[in-house]
Nucleic acid binder design. Sequence first.
DNA 1: TTGAAAGCGCTAACAG
DNA 2: CTGTTAGCGCTTTCAA
Lengths: 355, 355
Amino acid sequence: MADVTLRDVARVSGCSVATVSRVLAGTRPVGAETARRVREAAETLGYRPNHAARALRSRSTGTVGLVLPQITNPFYPALVRELTHALHAGGRAVLLADCDDDPVAEAEYIADLLGRQVDALLVIPAHEERSRDAVTAAAARVPLVLMDRGCGPAVADSVAVDNTAGMALVLDHLAAAGRRRVCFLGATGTASAAAERRAAYAAGAAALDPGAPDQVALGDFSVEWGRAAVDEVWAARPDALVCANDLIAIGALQRLQQLGVDVPGEVAVTGFDDIPMAALSAPGITTVRQPVTELAAEAARLLGRRLAGGEEGSPRQAIRLTPELVVRESSVARPAGTAGGTVPAPGGAASLLAD
Amino acid sequence: MADVTLRDVARVSGCSVATVSRVLAGTRPVGAETARRVREAAETLGYRPNHAARALRSRSTGTVGLVLPQITNPFYPALVRELTHALHAGGRAVLLADCDDDPVAEAEYIADLLGRQVDALLVIPAHEERSRDAVTAAAARVPLVLMDRGCGPAVADSVAVDNTAGMALVLDHLAAAGRRRVCFLGATGTASAAAERRAAYAAGAAALDPGAPDQVALGDFSVEWGRAAVDEVWAARPDALVCANDLIAIGALQRLQQLGVDVPGEVAVTGFDDIPMAALSAPGITTVRQPVTELAAEAARLLGRRLAGGEEGSPRQAIRLTPELVVRESSVARPAGTAGGTVPAPGGAASLLAD
DNA sequence: TTGAAAGCGCTAACAG
DNA sequence: CTGTTAGCGCTTTCAA
């Protein structure tokens, strides 16, 4: 029951601790027979390496810190899931810190994680500017990958969705569906999601309607703002509301339903991110799905490369992954035959189970 | 830049490493002047304790493992948030493992976390029976607290919501609103949320309607089941659907709207948990809010007590916290004056911000 | 291919 | 109150 150490395994298998270490770590060639005996002894004794000792000696804890602005942001749980799986697959454990959207707390968590000898850091910065110092300092000490949001140019390797491509998918879809009077319900600020989606809308909407780039209402990424934004733009009688994320779209949809407006008949509504709620609202929301699994895989890969070494001098990488359009009922009128009674197919909706 | 060790601090402050250790850890009284010099030296050198070395020596990593069935379960992000905050407040870091509802993966993660010398474990078991062996074994090695779900009697300390009290809140509310033909849309299985809520419904519903305890449809905790369940019970023309969780309630609501049924006019719908989506659906769903902050605080407190020691022999504690009823539009007809046009007050809905 | 030995940075006896 | 000393369990030279 008590902890079995390398010495115990060495004694039982009749060789030295050094040999046992080599067998178990596979760092150097060891005689086949010896190796077998060692492995057998380790097995029967139930040997478990002591990571603290290993870390002290080898200066590597096999641990990665994950710093988030807010785990309750509905886009993050799926990302955290994929990240932990990708990192665990590489034999690493994940230390989680939720900084509650506070850059000061974020800096403290980062310092604490560095003190705990994390091998690397994965950070979704809480703030475009105010996270920069802490992130830059941390990036000088360990490999660090930024995710989802930016934090100034070339501060560290980064992985994020291609917001411009995503917005283009939405606009193409709306154009193909014959929508012409388009409005954008977005968010203020310089954060990448807000700024890039805004800019991509402005760039792409002119092709639909010369006046569209000016039909813009800016607030924050919330349901409340989505509700309020409808009232700001409804007088222009748009036939499509392009929302900068799914929460805004949900709010817009609620307000439209309250006003008795037919969606998608009178107006189409689109979101961005594909959070679980986008599939569950009625009508389901057409949105841009972030490639969460690929985002996580890329982040893990970048970390792995830097950890493997030999990349010290290589330039920062900024990886952008192309998202996918998920078409649901909020942008496409149902075929006439299925108007009543049938359950709408929740297009590719992930099944949510909970208790 | 290079790592500063206790020796460096000792040399600069002119005393022994032991003294420095004492000052910084506060384990023993140290002369005021010496302490000052040590602290000053540590400060100017930028000393950061090496947690790996500390862990190796003191057999305590200051780290707690958190093992979850599925972070994407919409009830867990808020719980994870509160747990990490509560534990960080106690100076502990959190190692996160998401086992994807697989008890085998769960056992592996638990073993890995133990190998990493976590001081304690917080486990939301993936399965009532199949998680038991791994949990029991782990509980023999470190303090372990079970959360949210059960895992056999007296396996470890546990913290969960009082499902019986929660269901009683719902039934009282419906009775006061004059509802009499009540149906339960629940889940099969022996997991505590399913079984306890089912039993509490059966016990409480008889007071409303002698036939109500038999008006039960059982599936799983999903939106899909919520939709299907309506069709199973609708023939009985209930005036209230009591759902075992919010996802079932969301599905039920969707199906009812599709059938053109007025909610809450013809039928009231209630949920359980108060996940974010419950506030965002239209109408908002009346539900039982789990006391997430208190749940987390209790779990942290139990862990702290066991870690402080002196409790080795004390019996397992099973703490049940009383939830709160959150009344929204799905169970209460709007006052006549506010029927049209105004934005519904999203009763206490947490503001969700995302990008 | 293997073993002996030297620590990694820190804490905890044990003296003084 | 403070210093000396002995390791925690492991990896990694250096010799054999």
